[in-house]
């Protein structure tokens, strides 16, 4: 079975380490915050200028001046800090954030990522995504493996305008966990009950399949 949104979040959360500063993109990446392992402390960075994002406020706590990068009302955790956009992106561009999780439309075997623009259709802008992919060393891309029409999103070469070039090394799809190395996708783990053959058939770019590909356990 393909992973659910929650399972994708749970699998990403296994990459967290105690003391990590983490930036989570909009959508599935946001769910990762719900699965921080017990006893582990992580601090969430929101690129509008907040380190130490907390949960949504109660009705009584709502404050128009307290939002996250998704423009949602939020709270702060104990030990949080608030700063300007320039300071926020100095953290991001300076490589100070330990883990970045974001979504994408396509990735390719050169580590390129396309996530912000579908020409003629979607022209909303890149927000902070280009800064995040260029600035972070440790990035996990979460996405569905193929489109609703069955077209692979793991390609030899991205077809859409790039968000970043050569910056992606880890991809978690609903079918597999994959690393990108030396111009190929390396199949590291597969979703429970999903065969290697299915993953390979839904991957357009070159994929290397090790002798043993463990199943994820939930």
């Amino acid at each position: 079975m393909a992973l659910t949104r929650e399972q994708i979040a749970i699998r990403v959360a296994r990459e967290l380490q105690d003391g990590f500063y983490v930036n989570l993109g909009i959508g599935i990446p946001t769910l990762v915050a719900n699965y921080v392992p017990e006893g582990m402390e992580v601090m969430l960075q929101s690129e509008n200028g907040l380190l130490g994002m907390g949960q949504f406020p109660t009705e009584d706590e709502i404050d128009a001046d307290m939002i996250n990068a998704g423009k949602q009302t939020v709270t702060t955790v104990t030990g949080a800090s608030i700063f300007s956009s320039a300071e926020s992106f100095a953290m991001i561009r300076g490589g100070h954030v330990d883990l970045t999780v974001l979504g994408a439309f396509e990735v390719d075997t050169s580590g390129n990522i396309a996530s912000y623009m579908i020409p003629g259709k979607l022209i909303k802008g890149m927000g902070g995504a280009m800064d995040l992919v260029a600035g972070a060393d440790n990035i996990i891309v979460t996405m569905t493996h193929a489109s609703k029409h069955g077209e692979s999103k793991l390609l030899t070469k991205c077809s859409l305008p790039l968000t970043g070039a050569g910056c992606i090394k880890k991809v978690l799809t609903d079918l597999a966990y994959i690393e990108i190395e030396d111009g190929a996708f390396i199949l590291k783990e597969r979703a429970p009950g999903v065969s290697v053959e299915e993953i390979v058939s839904k991957t357009e770019g070159k994929m290397i399949v090790p002798d043993h590909v463990p199943e994820m356990v939930f």
């Binding site: 690129e47 956009s85 992106f89 561009r93 890149m126 927000g127 902070g128």
Partner: peptide
């Protein structure tokens, strides 16, 4: 369209 960090 300008990346957010570049804009700042």
């Amino acid at each position: 369209l300008t990346p957010q960090g570049t804009l700042a």
